[in-house]
Design a protein around this nucleic acid. Sequence first.
DNA 1: TTGCGTGCAAAGGTTTTGCATGGCA
DNA 2: TGCCATGCAAAACCTTTGCACGCAA
Lengths: 134, 134
Amino acid sequence: MKTTYRTKQQDELMAYLQQHPGAHHTAAQIKEYFARQDKNIGTATIYRQLERFVEDGKVRKYLLETGDSACYEYVGGQEGCTAHFHLKCEKCGRLIHMNCEELKRLETHLLEDHGFEWTIGKTVFYGVCDKCRK
Amino acid sequence: MKTTYRTKQQDELMAYLQQHPGAHHTAAQIKEYFARQDKNIGTATIYRQLERFVEDGKVRKYLLETGDSACYEYVGGQEGCTAHFHLKCEKCGRLIHMNCEELKRLETHLLEDHGFEWTIGKTVFYGVCDKCRK
DNA sequence: TTGCGTGCAAAGGTTTTGCATGGCA
DNA sequence: TGCCATGCAAAACCTTTGCACGCAA
């Protein structure tokens, strides 16, 4: 799905996500937020826009708790985020950006030994971060 | 939830899962399989038993980012079988199960050098598989 | 016999889809 | 003006829950 026209809802959704970097939101939470501002945005619109943002690499989608609704988080659209790796803490929700030789090694290994061309930008490592383990 | 009685459905479900190691199944697929054998097992029963198997560590549950239904996979109760990884091909949709020293190395690295306790079962590597790259 | 597990159906919740309308270009 | 995006409602899905019945121990 590609955007042809730029709309007010689009801008407001993106603005909201950008203003809360590092936070993750469900579609319902986003709808509620705008409702509190007396701005109604249809649920379908929220899902459709989020899907586009994800395609563009500006937003990342997570499924944290099994069965719960999906979470969305602004990660910016720059190459910066496609070249490094993301760890998501399942306890505090923090998204950790990591640039590490070990992971680059893995990328090479997957490609050369398994023929798998890894899309780093879409992959999220789930786990528990150092702070939450203490 | 704990099992008190041992039932036929329980045994048949576990037998089916064990007979397909390395394969992933949705609840619907499992139901369909038994239907083809003219054995009816209620959807609720399937979910309830799967939940128990997961609690026991015999089966692993995982979700893909697509928000599809949950997948279940027999991993046995032993340590050796819990340490494998999932690669998802974005083109053909195939889920690849990989057991590889390199990935185990990464697990150790993340823990020891970054303090990150990786939940392998929840992580899926996205990319393009060897067959689709040709 | 006791009470847990099962199957059915209905409920609950999230996400998608169809369609008429409104708004961007 | 021509389409696309929106909003609403309904549909489509997946999963859970309530309840009466059957079966294991």
